[in-house]
Amino acid sequence: MNDMITGSPVRRFLIKALIFISMIMAGDLLTGSILRTFYFQQTEGSSYRTTLAMEKTQADLLIFGSSSALHHYVPKVFTDSLAVSYFNAGRDGQSVFYFDAVLRAILKRYIPRMIILDIHPKQLFRMQESYDRLSAILPYYRNHPEIREVITLKSRFEKYKMLSSIYPFNSQIFSILSSHRMLHPTPHGDESGYVPLRRSMMAQPRDTITFRPEMKIDPNKIEALDQFIGNCVQKGIKLYVIQSPGHWHYPDNISDTALAIILGKYSVELWDYADDPQFYTRTELFQDLSHLNHDGAVIFSSVVAQRMAIEPVAEYVKKHRASDVSVSDPGYIRPND
């Protein structure tokens, strides 16, 4: 091989560089395609549940939110008492950007009847990880043009990073393989999307969390939430916005104030169980300070389902398409520095 390349050092170098780059590109393409194939052959785990949410589910009732959505809404309670099909699209550690993207993908396929959006008290603060964790939906970038706008929030270079076929599956090889259908041929219980928590927390007094003053409301999140609610209203989906029980107390939360303004814009009521004593006084219903365990989730779900059954679903919607409140209304957004 060495003898073949003669001539000037410049030529030699250029050939070498060319070989090197083509090796990387070929390897990237090959590995990337294998990862992609295997990614969509998973039969359990959070990526699998995201695929179900974006590409498969046809359920009447969808649950959106982060961990408190994923672990607090028990499918059987809703299917039994409301006679609807159920899917939980919640994902640990995700933010309103993710909910927005998943809903966009779903609305390309069908219109669900009802949506529960579980909003954590910290949900609307600016946090870098909310952007970084959008990596969870990079595998869908190629086939879902509707979510690309959301992904650009992650970084303005994302479009160029996607030139690599491996990049969307970065860090996932281990979970892709361990959740592959070869290892889990039969359904694993992830089909409803719900993930129960099983342990109980030790009894402890309720903590009060005050937010550090440098925590700011994120205008991008306000916009994403506005988009999400606007989509629901526009498509005639009955939307329930819920704050689930937590063992932490957040007084004077500007995130809540911002939320209230958006909900007000669309006349959506907030069902607030965050400070509901029937939960926070009973530590045995929690797994940790911000998550109910399965027992707690069953009780909480029936409370929610009963209230949903009473609420007049039918007369809802159409009237709220108000656009008179500007999203960037400085009334609730603190200017960035």
Binding site: G27, S67, R133, S135, K154, I166, S171, Q287
Partner: peptide, 23 residues
């Protein structure tokens, strides 16, 4: 080039990788 591919595959590029902490 294998080293580059490994970096692409399992390098950490931002805070997207995290351990979700539940006790």
């Amino acid at each position: 080039s294998l080293l580059v591919l490994i970096i692409l595959m399992i390098g950490v590029f931002d805070g997207g990788q995290f351990i979700y902490f539940q006790f």
